[in-house]
Design a protein around this nucleic acid. Sequence first.
DNA 1: AGATTAAGCGTACGATCGTACGTTATGCAA
DNA 2: TTGCATAACGTACGATCGTACGCTTAATCT
Lengths: 199, 199
Amino acid sequence: MAGRASAQAALETRRSVVKAAADLASIEGLDSVTIGRLAEIVQMSKSGVIGQFRTKEALQLETVELVFADFRTRVWDTVKRFPQGLPRLLAACDAWTEYAADPGYPGGCLMTQVTYDYDGRDGAVHERLLEGRNQWRATLRADLATAVEAGDLPEDTDVESVVFGLESLASFITPARLLHGDMRAADRAYQGMRRIIGV
Amino acid sequence: MAGRASAQAALETRRSVVKAAADLASIEGLDSVTIGRLAEIVQMSKSGVIGQFRTKEALQLETVELVFADFRTRVWDTVKRFPQGLPRLLAACDAWTEYAADPGYPGGCLMTQVTYDYDGRDGAVHERLLEGRNQWRATLRADLATAVEAGDLPEDTDVESVVFGLESLASFITPARLLHGDMRAADRAYQGMRRIIGV
DNA sequence: AGATTAAGCGTACGATCGTACGTTATGCAA
DNA sequence: TTGCATAACGTACGATCGTACGCTTAATCT
């Protein structure tokens, strides 16, 4: 059996490949994902796999896009209706830690994995990652600023350092679970976030 | 010029290879370090490089050993003379964040890199990493327990969650520096640690 | 219906991977 | 001085890497 030219089927293929790439990347890192192993997983030929993306970097970028989409769905969409400020911030911390603890990938939170993998490299993936994270940071900053204006947080709150703290705590959930077997990592992270915020 | 059988020279070779491996690993991760590229860096043949270690995993393990040795020197040795309890804990946080911000490797703190790289994998590196980190966690716990006993910290301090918070904050210094260009990451981490500890 | 487009396959390529092997040259002990 | 241990070399191996190319086949469009 050879190729079928249905555009819909092709889209499904793309998705299955990207999903497999994300699963693999969550364990071993995005850049040890290999066309050959992907082909084996989705039961296709190497050329069939790469043909969808033309280049490996394009596949990696699409995988990163999936990560952001997941994060948006699981975290951002669940809190965007909260009133901006402290309520939304706390809801975000809750959804965030819960997502990091159960991201739906076998090797843990892919957002975390990709962040630590590409922080020190150059290239399109690094750039896209930075952009995506900055978007999230901006909403955190906005909520913090609103909370300060509303008087829910002290006037001298160091917004930038609080953002740093929140990102730190969320990012350590995966290694705490996988390395130390800490099954309460999400709770600890949320608890820490409240201390960092000061509430 | 061919081999010289001086044991001392061989030791120097080992060290230069491991050092190069650590430098490379700090940027791209320990397991994308390649015998061939190491050989190129230290100006030796591939067989000369691997001959020192027999297998690549042994080289990786020795690299991890270097990481722990560095951490011990830069962090532990500078605080071990402090009185156990809150004083030593705070001194440790100071040395720890400073180390993470300036670890002496081009791609950032190698301890962090290896942790996030091998947390979800099996094998000897994972095992050794876990053991080494647990050792450090034990001293943190000891200082926290002593601080509680001494009345420097509240009775209901959740030791395990505090340890989680400290590790989180220290581990985010590298990505904050490399990804977001945050040059005050170490300060933010130290500041966050004090909030987590509650002092 | 026939023509066009594209999905997926098979094969091949040059590189590079980790490792094994035998050789050469050196330092140290007997 | 002779002999042994070993550092480092060169070469070779089978695998796998990412990518390029042409082919077959099926869906879509005129």
